[in-house]
């Protein structure tokens, strides 16, 4: 039996925060490069943007928004914990973070389609 220490909410909060962070770190250079195409090759950008109209891409974009929101809410939880001290509702806050992230992603998805 491998380590079974990890089945608690704050551990998963950490995993989500780290994974979303790494994903965003990979995405951002790509994002900034594509954006710079607006300046250097507007036609190419419009072509790419057209490609993003497909439902598959819309879904991936929503996934990114969820990741961003998750990283943000997880980060806010950490900032509160580290700078404002300890409260018992921390675990509930984790649940809220996840919930809000998903909602934001949904709003994006709904608006995008």
């Amino acid at each position: 039996m491998k380590s079974q220490n990890r089945n608690h909410p704050t551990y998963w909060a950490f995993v989500l925060h780290r994974l979303s962070g790494v994903l965003l770190a990979v995405f951002i250079p790509v994002h900034l490069y594509v954006l710079s195409l607006a300046v250097t090759d507007g036609a190419m950008l419009d072509q790419l943007l057209g490609w993003t109209e497909t439902p598959m891409v819309k879904l991936m974009e929503s996934g990114l928004v969820v990741m961003l929101a998750a990283h943000l809410t997880g980060g806010l939880r950490l900032l509160v914990l580290e700078f404002l001290g300890w409260y018992d509702w921390q675990k509930t806050a984790v649940a809220f973070s996840v919930g809000i992230s998903l909602c934001v992603g949904l709003v994006f998805l709904l608006n995008a389609s």
């Binding site: 950008l45 928004v65 709003v107 994006f108 995008a112």
Partner: peptide
């Protein structure tokens, strides 16, 4: 995120 939700609704283009 707020801007993007609005912008995507308006249609993205260069």
């Amino acid at each position: 995120i707020a801007t993007m939700i609005y912008a995507v609704q308006q249609g993205l283009s260069t």
